Amino acid sequence: MSGRKVPHFKSDEEAAAFLEQDLSDLDFSQFKPSPFEFTPKAAQLNMRLPSSLLEALKSKAKERGIPYTRYIRQLLEHDIAGR
Rank of each mutant, 00 (worst) to 15 (best):
L45Y: 10
F9G: 02
L45V: 15
S24D: 03
Q21M: 06
D25T: 04
K41C: 03
A43Q: 08
K10S: 13
E37F: 01
G3L: 04
E14S: 05
P33H: 05
F28S: 12
L76H: 12
G3M: 05
E37Q: 00
K41M: 02
D27V: 03
A81G: 00
E63F: 04
I66L: 06
P33K: 05
L19D: 13
P33M: 00
R4V: 09
P35L: 00
P67C: 01
L54Y: 13
E63M: 11
M1F: 05
K58M: 08
Q30A: 07
G65M: 08
F31N: 00
S11F: 02
F28K: 14
L76W: 14
F38Q: 15
S34Q: 05
I66E: 12
K62G: 08
E20Y: 14
S51Y: 14
L75F: 13
L26W: 02
A81R: 06
D12H: 08
K32P: 04
T39E: 13
A16V: 02
A15M: 09
I80M: 10
G82N: 10
L57A: 13
A17P: 06
S51C: 01
R48W: 13
F18G: 03
Q44T: 15
F31I: 01
E20M: 11
Q30K: 06
I66N: 10
A42Q: 12
E55T: 12
N46D: 04
F9E: 01
I72A: 05
Q44A: 08
A42M: 09
K5H: 03
Q44G: 02
G82D: 08
R48C: 07
S59V: 11
S11H: 00
K60P: 04
P35Y: 10
V6K: 06
A56Y: 07
S24K: 12
F31E: 02
E14T: 05
F18P: 02
S29C: 00
M47W: 06
T69Q: 09
L26V: 13
R70D: 09
T69C: 02
Q21L: 06
D12C: 07
F9Y: 14
P50A: 13
T69P: 07
K62V: 11
S24E: 10
P35N: 03
R83T: 15
L23I: 01
G82I: 03
E20Q: 14
Q74V: 01
P40E: 06
I66A: 09
Y71G: 03
Y68E: 14
A81T: 11
P50G: 10
E55R: 11
S51V: 10
Q21G: 08
F31L: 03
Q44V: 15
K5W: 03
L57K: 08
Q44E: 09
K60L: 15
A61S: 06
P40H: 01
Y68R: 11
I80A: 13
